[in-house]
Design a protein around this nucleic acid. Structure first.
Lengths: 207, 207
DNA sequence: AAAGAATGTGAGTATCCTGTTTATATTCTC
DNA sequence: GAGAATATAAACAGGATACTCACATTCTTT
């Protein structure tokens, strides 16, 4: 919910000190996310990002040592956001249906600003050597939350991890697909996605 | 199952007549699919494709007027394949479980050669002006098959179309994700995917 | 076997774009 | 008003790209 400001700050050429430069950096990251989402990795150039941010290319390189550091910052921000959504939905015990609803609502919210950012980040954008670790750790925590939820609503302890993987990728698939069609906020789609989660987690034939 | 040879042949500079050139064209399309899948749209260059096909760049341009025509041919071949898989799985009435199994097996088969081709084709690769129509028609037929299957196993007639969309994109999501991790042939994943399909289509709590 | 058609070659062209630097100008803090 | 922080955009060097063309090789046909 709250917007963090400081953060360990990825890899930066220098730290913004005044309010003006903080806003600049923020604008760059935001514009970067937009460009990445709309044009994909192939269309993601530093010049374009600077222009989209309403900032000169020089300013960009004042804070980000290179292109990869910028993607890294974008990735970090987005993943933190998604992670908090899942964490919240899976927090304290609640009925399965409510969990599913909150999860769907949160995930859709996280994708409605930059619809395809998530997939681009996962599929297209290359990883800095140092970011592989961060990336893997994100994936791990991501799945852990799903696994915890699955374990909570499902008696069987077997296959929990696989179920988490299947569930998460199914949800991502549906949301990604809806994003491409601008159908992210179609209510019947949301309902159906909730039903899918419920049906799968509650256990199919042997409910 | 059977490999078609002729086809209306997309947009070609000239038709291959002898066996040699037919093989060349085939090699180019095949290599194109490989490059596209492995390097994504950003890494998809005509020179690279020619090299991967073991053919000179000149030969490529002898048959394909430009880059887009080549993607078009790749797209066509792949989509035809996928379509036939679904058609077969959804053909003549069979128990839900069997349908799900055949579908999963077929889809995994269609993705195991060029794991990420499908997504790249859908997300990254741009569409020729003339291909939008073909693309849309593919999507339509694609969904029709899913809808037919859903209608068959579900009493409720409402939301059939939405369900088809949700189901197809969920399956795609799972397969795409598994492909990225080289887990396409993990048997427990296949089983779980089958279970997901069954659970969702058979109707959740009210089985 | 010869001629003409089909096929294959790959160096070369022209263009566009990219990431990044740098020298300079503006704005803030103290 | 001095010195630090911040912003600017022209320019560069390099690489990659899609695509052509003049020529060489192989097939088919008579």
């Amino acid at each position: 919910m709250s917007t963090r400001i400081a953060k360990p700050a990825a890899r930066m050429r220098k730290q913004p000190r005044q309010a003006r430069s903080i806003a600049t950096v923020e604008a760059i990251i935001e514009a970067g996310a937009r460009v990445l989402s709309e044009l994909g990795w192939a269309g993601f150039s530093t010049n374009k990002v600077a222009e989209a941010a309403g900032v000169s290319i020089g300013s960009l390189y004042q804070y980000f040592p290179d292109k990869l550091a910028l993607v890294e910052a974008i990735r970090r921000r987005h993943f933190d956001h998604v992670l908090s959504v899942i964490r919240e939905a899976a927090a304290d015990e609640k009925p399965l249906r409510q969990f599913a609803r909150e999860l769907v609502r949160g995930m859709i919210g996280a994708h409605s600003i930059h619809p395809t950012l998530h997939q681009v980040l996962l599929d297209e954008a290359p990883g800095d050597r140092g970011s592989r670790a961060a990336h893997a750790s994100f994936q791990t925590r991501y799945l852990e939350h799903y696994a915890a939820a699955v374990a909570q609503y499902r008696k069987r302890r077997k296959d929990t991890e696989t179920m988490a993987r299947v569930l998460s990728s199914a949800i991502e698939g549906v949301i990604h697909n809806a994003a491409r069609r601008n159908m992210l906020d179609a209510p019947e789609l949301q309902r159906q996605l909730v039903e899918l989660i419920e049906a799968y987690v509650s256990g199919g034939r042997a409910a």
